[in-house]
Structure formats: C-alpha cells, structure tokens
Design a binder for these strands. Structure first.
Length: 531
DNA sequence: GTTGAGCGTT
C-alpha cells in the first residue's frame, strides 16, 4: 500500500496517509486526520514552487502517473477566507476584512454529544486543527465534576468557525454536533435582508434584483402578494445589506426606501402591543437584535440610520452623501420631518433633504466601494448616538418621522403634522389608509411594526440568517447523515446527499426566524455559495 | 458507579 506523507503545514511532522488502490488519496482520508482541510499542496524540489494536488470528486491525485506520490512532503490546504467581491478596493484589506468578520460573526459554538471523557484540553486540541481556539469549555456537574456531555468553543477567526460549522466532528471517538447555541440567537448576526418600501406595482422582482445587484450579489427577492407596496431583497453579504439601510434609491423612476427587515420575533410581539411604551425598549423587543440599533438611535435624520454606529469609529460616513431627496414618487415629505437633530452630531445633514425633487445621487457601482469602509463596530449595540442612557426617552421628535411626515396620526390620516402622540399606531389599519400603503409600510417597518398582516405572505418558515443556516445545515444534517443522534422521524433526515439541505423542513427555532424570509432562492445551491 | 438530548452557576 502506498502512503502519502502529509502534514498540516509545511515543515510540520507528517502523518502517513494510506492511498487507495488506484493511487488516489481520498479526501475523506485526509480530512479524518486534518479536519477542515480541502486539499493538498507540496513544494517542488527543483523549482521551489508550491504546487497544488489535483482534486476531483473527493479524490486527490498523485502528481505523477508513473511515480505516484513520490517522496514529496505534502501539506494541507484549508479553505480561504471569505472571498471579497471583485470590485472591492484596497480599503478592504484582508486584515481589515478579517477583523470585521471576526468581530461581527465569531460566536461561541456549542458542541453537543461529547464523550464523557473529553476534557477541555482535548476539546481544544481537537478544534485547534481548525484555527485559533479562544475558548474551549466542557460543562460539568458542579458536584461531581462529571462532564455533561456538551461544551462550548470559540474561534478566533470566522474562517475557522465556518469550517467547524460545516464539518462533522469525531471527537474522542464520538460524533459530535457543533452549532450556534440557541441562546445566541441572532445576537451576533447581521441580517442579509433589507426591507424596500415605497415600491410601486410595476417594480417586479427582476427590477429589484437587477438594481440591487450592483451593490452585491442578491440571493433573493420577495414581493408580497397581493401588492403591498414593499418588498424584501436579500444579499449574500450582510454588509451590503446593512450599507443600504436607510437609503433611498430610484428604481424605474420611483424612489424606494431601504431599511432593515426586522426579525419576526419582534414583529409578532409588536403586533400584540396596543399602547407603546416609549420608556421600555422591551416593549419593542429590543435586545441583542439590531446590532446597529437602528430602531433605537434617536435624532438620526431618517437616513443612514444603520450607519450611525460607524460614527463611533471615526466618522467615515462622511463619504456617503446624505443628499437623499424624499418624495420623488410624489409623496411630499417635508424636509423638516427628516432633517434636523442628529443625535451625536454625526450625519447632521438634515438640511440636505428636500421634497419632491430628484435625488442628487446616482447609485452607481462606484458607491459600492465606499460603502465597504463604513463597517465598524456593528457589534456594539446601541452605542454612541443614542441620546441618553434611556434611549427612548431621549429620542426627540424625529424618531417616528415617517408616520407624521405621511400625515398619519392616531386617527389614521391628517392634514396636519403637529401631533406627537403616536400611542395608537397599532390601531392603524394599513389596508384602509387613504394613502399609499407603501409609505406606511416603510414607516412601520422602521419600527418593527409591520407584522404578519403585511409580511407573512409567504409560507416559508425557513430561518434566514446565515449562521443559523450554517448550524442547521452543517450541524444537524451533517450529524444526521453521518451518525448524529436524531431520531428517524426527524425531518432533517432527508435523503439529500453530502449533508446539504435541500428542503425547508427544518423546524423553526423560535428566536432565529426572520419573518421576511422567502423561499424562492433559499435553496441549497445558492446557500452553498456561502461556503 | 449509571446516561446520550440538550443550550452556558461566568
């Protein structure tokens, strides 16, 4: 039998891996020893160049047909960092990207099914093959010290985390599940989906896809039917989604407004609220959702709400012009309703908003680059610009600008704009308002007030965030397909090959669902683009 | 001393 000398990195002590009869090396053989690896490379002794080993359909082929693997010392290839988009510029250095991704998305991962004997040391040792392990702990009985059979790990890089979530794990002789813990929910996630308000009926999904694709890959477009004057656009990259939030864009001559697509959990809650309590963020379900605090930042000018937090890192937002005009669709919005007090003195460009005009900004591809530099500290909830420790009390009068700008008061519609009493918003019947429902929807969405009545048009209950998907697909299914401990009736036990989820049968996890998730393109093929 | 779906005394 032929053996291949493989080490994790060049120069490390090699392990001899058995090749197959046909001379190939199974990728699974490699991965059994080097979890997370996806290929091999070696250094050509003559040219000193590093060469890759041909890989196809789970097999690695020797460099030479005649001499096989030879005496080369091979070392592992691991998946690269997330590829940035081709039009990224130098502002997005790898280091910066890595830092952002780390800050944004690394989270504790729960490891289930650990053998009783596994120690924190052996747990760490195992996962260090994937990358830097910041934390590895075993949950134990306080009295006996006996392991409870599960633990937590945290990685230093998102790359490592991704690989862990997408691999199966044989730890101390037992197949274990690694998932994002329920307790984390969406806390560290950045939504990929945006709400697009003020849509007109002639804006179809192709229009939306085509338009928004220039900012980044669009993975899904959902337009509620019957027509509700808003839609949802999902991007591959949550950063792109976030960068667009708070902006107005012109599509087919219509000014649409992009804002956060709020998680379902909040919206469902909000629907129950009959009288809003401004003193309590919790009445809106405010917690670790909304990493950018979009719904809490007071005094923002109605645009770029999602970017407020970036300001805490040095005001790079200045490069994003705030000259968005409102009302190009003929819905006159007074500039006063938008402009004005910017809580922390940032984005204080309220005066730039005008009504009824055309936007000064053309959303060309070049804008995309500048957006990318805007992401800092998104994991710092509700910071900086919140006017006071008690966010809601200090929101000023601009926090619910849209409803008022739209001439809506507690009676539903008004020609005056004076009232600040919004306590009866929940009584609004969006379908009976004598104004364009898109305007109301856009306004309500900013407050997570759009609930099932508007958004549950689709029946897809698939959890929408990337990591929960990763957990569900990489975790559950891999476990199920490769020896997990789920029962035969578990819907995850679908026959799909190689652990990729092919349906939407995953049971909902209460706090990870996004109301706006649509089914159209949430399939394995597109999701696999993440990997 | 046993066990095998779950979710963390910070």
């Amino acid at each position: 039998m032929d053996f291949v000398q493989v080490s994790e990195e060049e120069g490390d002590e090699p392990i001899q891996l058995p090749a197959e009869e046909d001379g190939t090396l199974l990728l699974s053989t490699l991965q059994a020893q080097f979890p997370g690896s996806c290929g091999l490379k070696y250094r050509n002794l003559d040219t000193k160049a590093v060469r890759g080993v041909r890989s196809n359909e789970g097999r690695l082929f020797p460099p030479s047909v005649e001499s096989g693997w030879g005496e080369y010392a091979y070392f592992c290839v691991f998946p690269k960092e997330n590829k940035r988009k081709s039009d990224d510029n130098l502002e997005n250095s790898t280091a910066k990207t890595k830092r952002i991704e780390t800050r944004l998305r690394c989270t504790d991962l729960i490891v289930l099914g650990l053998p009783w004997k596994t120690t924190e040391e052996s747990l760490r040792e195992y996962f260090e093959t994937y990358g830097e392990v910041l934390m590895a702990q075993i949950k134990k009985d306080t009295k006996s010290g006996q392991s409870k059979g599960f633990g937590f790990v945290r990685f230093g890089s998102y790359d490592a985390q991704m690989r862990v979530l997408t691999n199966r794990h044989l730890i101390d002789g037992r197949w274990c599940e690694v998932k994002v813990p329920n307790s984390k929910g969406m806390g560290h996630q950045v939504p990929c989906k945006v709400f697009v308000g003020r849509c007109t009926e002639d804006i179809n999904s192709d229009d939306l896809r085509e338009y928004f694709s220039k900012f980044g890959e669009v993975t899904d477009v959902f337009i509620p039917r019957p027509f509700r004057a808003f839609s949802f656009v999902t991007f591959l990259d949550p950063d792109v989604a976030q960068s667009l939030c708070g902006e107005d864009h012109i599509i087919k001559g219509v000014s649409v407004h992009v804002s956060n697509a709020a998680p379902k959990a909040e919206q469902n809650r909000n629907q129950q609220v009959q009288s809003y309590n401004y003193n309590s963020a919790n009445s809106f379900g405010m917690h670790s959702y909304h990493p950018q605090g979009n719904h809490m930042n007071p005094g923002r000018n109605g645009h770029h709400r999602g970017n407020n937090q970036h300001n805490a890192h040095g005001g790079e937002n200045a490069i994003v012009p705030n000259n968005h005009n409102i009302g190009t669709a003929g819905y006159g919005m007074g500039g006063n309703n938008y402009g004005g007090n910017s809580g922390g003195g940032y984005h204080n460009n309220g005066g730039n908003h005008s009504s009824g005009g055309n936007t000064n900004r053309q959303d060309g591809g070049s804008q995309y680059n500048s957006r990318q530099s805007n992401f800092h500290g998104m994991n710092q909830p509700h910071n900086g610009n919140v006017g006071g420790s008690n966010g809601w009390m200090n929101r000023g009068h601009l926090d619910m600008p849209n409803l008022q700008a739209l001439g809506i008061n507690s009676q539903g519609s008004s020609s005056s704009n004076q009232g600040q009493n919004m306590s009866n918003q929940s009584m609004l019947n969006l379908n009976s308002l004598p104004i364009n429902p898109a305007l109301v929807a856009a306004a309500l969405n900013q407050w997570s007030l759009v609930g099932n009545q508007l958004q549950n048009q689709n029946q897809d209950q698939q959890g929408g965030n990337f990591l929960s998907w990763m957990a569900q697909n990489g975790g559950h299914n891999n476990a199920n397909n490769f020896g997990g401990r789920k029962g035969p009736n578990n819907p995850n036990n679908n026959p799909a090959a190689n652990g990729i989820k092919t349906d939407n049968s995953e049971p909902q996890n209460g706090n990870t669902g996004w109301s706006n998730q649509s089914s159209g393109s949430q399939n394995a093929a597109e999701k696999s683009n993440f990997l």
